[in-house]
């Protein structure tokens, strides 16, 4: 009887799944819907916009031509005042004419990509090395290292934020732009490394050592055996770890807000989104569109990763 289900059972199951899925998808639907609505439509509780409005997206992605900003009449009067020196006039005009108040979404996205992809890449490389050594090699202090790595993970970020920033100040890193960026980078790597190592380490343990021995008998050095046998077999886990590290970096707000506060040039998306709320551009459709665009890479990442998950099966290699 195993595997046989009645019609009512199946319908009930489908309903339960549907309920759960729609419950977790509702906030996203809300974001998507609002980002597509015109201003007059914002108060409407319906999720379906009356007319689709893509302006928010266009603006964020810089697809609109820069609008000729009208200088208010009062200001124009001041500008026409002959007593005012020309450079002052230019400064005032620039303040009103510039497109600075436009949200430079592309730049923030690029910052986010650089931080999260960069940190994830390094984290993955270090995870592989660390995971391999704790799962395969025997050395003094192995257990201590293994435990202390996990301990790092258990200590929450908030606790460490102040001391870390203080340390960065003390050695003079926090006072320069590149130093701060470097610190943040390092923090992302250290934050994600324990889990990466833990996941990969367990995965490596599941790959029979005999496969590496076979590669060595076929003439590979240990390093070559790892690259040609262990890593291809670990692709699903490598992808998982990379995405995990990427997402942690992508969504990270706390440390970024501390270390990058003085460097708006280097703000990442979470920081920028926060600013969008308080800026004069706090317009719902734009905030929601920006949120949507912030989400997009993560979704793409998952779709991409699921293709890797299929590869790298380890069965069939050894007997029993």
């Amino acid at each position: 009887m195993i595997g046989k289900r009645t019609i009512t059972g199946r319908i009930g199951f489908a309903l339960a799944v549907l309920l759960l899925v729609s419950f977790s998808l509702l906030p996203f639907a809300q974001i998507l819907s609002t980002s597509l609505k015109h201003q007059y439509d914002w108060g409407n509780p319906s999720l379906i916009p009356q007319t689709i409005n893509l302006d928010a997206y266009k603006e964020l992605l810089g697809l609109t031509e820069a609008k000729k900003v009208e200088i208010p009449a009062a200001i124009q009067k001041i500008l026409n005042n002959p007593k005012l020196p020309q450079d002052k006039k230019d400064a005032i005009a620039a303040k009103y004419m510039s497109n600075d108040n436009l949200f430079p979404f592309g730049k923030y996205m690029l910052n986010s990509v650089i931080f999260s992809v960069g940190a994830a890449t390094f984290s993955l490389v270090f995870s592989v090395m660390g995971a391999y050594s704790i799962s395969r090699l025997r050395f003094k202090g192995q257990v201590v290292i293994q435990r202390s790595v996990l301990f790092v993970y258990m200590v929450g970020g908030v606790l460490l934020m102040v001391p870390l920033y203080q340390m960065a100040m003390n050695i003079g890193l926090a006072s320069s732009l590149w130093g701060s960026a470097f610190c943040l980078f390092l923090i992302y790597i250290v934050q994600t490394l324990p889990v990466g190592m833990y996941m990969l380490g367990n995965y490596f343990r599941g790959i029979p050592f005999a496969l590496e021995e076979a590669a060595m008998m076929d003439g590979c050095s240990r390093k070559e055996a790892i690259i040609k046998v262990v890593l291809p077999l670990s692709l699903p886990m490598l992808a998982t770890v990379f995405i995990y590290c990427f997402i942690i970096g992508w969504n990270e707000y706390l440390f970024a807000s501390v270390f990058l506060k003085q460097y708006p040039e280097f703000h990442t998306l979470p920081l920028a989104l926060q600013e969008l709320f308080v800026s004069k551009n706090a317009i719902w459709d734009r905030i929601m569109a920006a949120s949507m665009l912030t989400l997009a890479p993560i979704v793409i990442c998952f779709l991409f990763a699921s293709r890797f998950m299929k590869g790298g099966k380890t069965d069939g290699g050894v007997k029993g």
Partner: peptide, 16 residues
């Protein structure tokens, strides 16, 4: 790898 030996493993050890 430097001994120039070929081996058939008891548990096959094929690359999956």
């Amino acid at each position: 790898q430097d001994r120039n030996i070929a081996m058939v493993f008891q548990n096959y050890a094929l690359y999956p």
